[in-house]
Design a protein around this nucleic acid. Structure first.
Lengths: 155, 155
DNA sequence: CGAGGGCAGTTCAAATTTGAACCACTTCGA
DNA sequence: TCGAAGTGGTTCAAATTTGAACTGCCCTCG
């Protein structure tokens, strides 16, 4: 391999900011959710995705896909949510081994209760700190980054 | 509390991109490091920060600070790196309970060996996907986000 | 002096995450 | 029609992460 192309100052700054902001925002929201809603971030995300899905249900594999985590991780967290009564499992009639995770009435209420404070915190740490122009660039740039990796991860 | 201010389309797009890109980039680099250098991302980061520090050493608490993780997490990972011979512990002469983590010669070599492929991957997934303008906005915007949280987390 | 409050790390148990192995059941291809 | 390769989840042990409790030692007030 030839001489590596090291990062210049701008690239380094972008990279480090990305990493630091990612970690800190994660931590901040993790704490907020645990404290104010009694849910871990992964658990909250599961509820959000189920709530957004038609019928309030998704296949296990789809959840893993959307949360960008492993299949076994989903199995574990859905089991936790089931214990809490916020999610229910349902066999998938079509596919033989398929399983749906379904948002329960209780899960919906819990989500509705938790969402406002969560969104408020998301604003505090990220959204309201930036102007519209910055948000637009962020969405565009990181959207590209995400899509590329999503496409490349799949196969 | 009054009616929550939900996110509009742009804000939502920025937020989701930020989260998805964060997760996917993390995963991509995790794999790259594990496969090509036999190090976990936290371990690699420890080596990087030590290498950047004057004398190749940092206090445990400083490491925790810079890596944005818990004290016990650092104790654990430094222990792992010690087993691998990449880092060494040294009592801090000044402070009574202080401990320095010191990069060993071996650790330096391991880092030098791992860095080029890692940087290349960072370019692939993030840096080279964006143009200079986007990088500048990213650095500026996420820099602000990170600094605000850093300042607020400290106390 | 002497008790309380901090500080810097470590230790510990509990929760989570991961990847690999596995299971039951299809669907092909020869 | 048999067996090989998939699918879609689950299970399992091992690695990691977390927060809370703990250890010694310093400092400072009363």
């Amino acid at each position: 391999m030839s001489e590596p192309r090291w990062l210049d100052d701008l690239e380094m700054a972008a990279w480090q900011s990305f990493v630091e902001a990612g970690h800190r925002v994660d931590r901040a929201l993790e704490r907020q959710l645990k404290d104010e809603a009694g849910l871990s971030h992964p658990q909250y995300e599961i509820l959000v995705h189920l709530s957004a899905a038609p019928g309030g249900e998704l296949r296990m594999a789809e959840l893993a896909e959307e949360l960008i985590t492993s299949k076994s991780g989903i199995t574990y967290q859905v089991a936790q949510l089931e214990k809490l009564g916020l999610v229910r499992r349902r066999a998938c009639p079509e596919q033989p081994r398929g399983v749906y995770a379904v948002l329960t009435e209780q899960g919906e209420q819990r989500l509705r209760g938790a969402a406002p404070a969560h969104v408020e915190r998301v604003r505090e740490v990220l959204i309201d700190v930036l102007d519209r122009e910055q948000l637009a660039v962020l969405a565009e740039a990181l959207g590209t980054v995400g899509r590329r990796l999503r496409a490349h991860d799949r196969p």
